[in-house]
């Protein structure tokens, strides 16, 4: 893990993607997230919108863009559920911001780093979701941390594969 100066990395390694890629990848992640659980049943231990948020935030290295993207993805996920709109939004907003902030400072090309980062940010997202729901809103919620752990592992494994696929879509200058 190589630590670089924030300004240097931001200037040298900002990844750019066509706007269509942002739109289609985000939409595909939302659609697949809604559709795949019907195929895999109860083993839906993944959160594709979260993985995509982390990927673009790490690649763009812009906390503002990561924040906005995380908020958008989270709000869409909330809109498809029957829970309050904003719970996922808050969790993914923070995750997008942190992922972009971390991406400025550390090397994120290494698959192991990506796996570790995704695992950590997934657990953070689950924790934020729980605290927002349980303590900020004061609502009763049944929670199983083991499921969240499985989800973090699932996200990490998906991230390793998906990140390398999405890397090919970036604009090479």
């Amino acid at each position: 893990m190589s630590l670089l100066g924030a300004g240097v990395r931001r200037d040298m390694e900002i990844r750019r993607y066509p706007v269509l890629v942002y739109a289609l990848v985000s939409l595909a992640s939302l659609v697949l997230q809604a559709w795949l659980p019907r195929i895999v049943g109860r083993y839906d231990w993944f959160d594709l919108p979260l993985v995509v948020t982390i990927y673009f935030a790490l690649g763009r290295r812009s906390p503002i863009q990561g924040t906005i993207m995380g908020a958008g993805m989270g709000l869409f996920e909330d809109a498809l559920s029957h829970h309050a709109i904003g719970v996922n939004g808050i969790a993914k907003t923070v995750v997008g911001f942190l992922a972009a902030s971390v991406g400025i400072r550390i090397e994120v090309e290494n698959p192991f780093i990506r796996l570790l980062l995704t695992f950590t940010l997934s657990l953070l997202s689950s924790t934020l979701y729980f605290f927002t729901y349980r303590f900020l809103l004061g609502l009763a919620i049944d929670w199983n941390w083991l499921t969240e752990l499985f989800r973090a592992v699932g996200n990490s494994l998906i991230a390793v594969v998906l990140f390398s696929m999405l890397d090919r879509l970036q604009v090479r200058e």
Binding site: R38, E77, L80, S81
Partner: peptide, 15 residues
């Protein structure tokens, strides 16, 4: 026809 779900096991809804 059922064509989709919420995408989250925290919300057991389908479309």
């Amino acid at each position: 026809q059922v064509y989709g779900s919420s995408g989250s096991d925290r919300s057991h809804v389908f479309y």
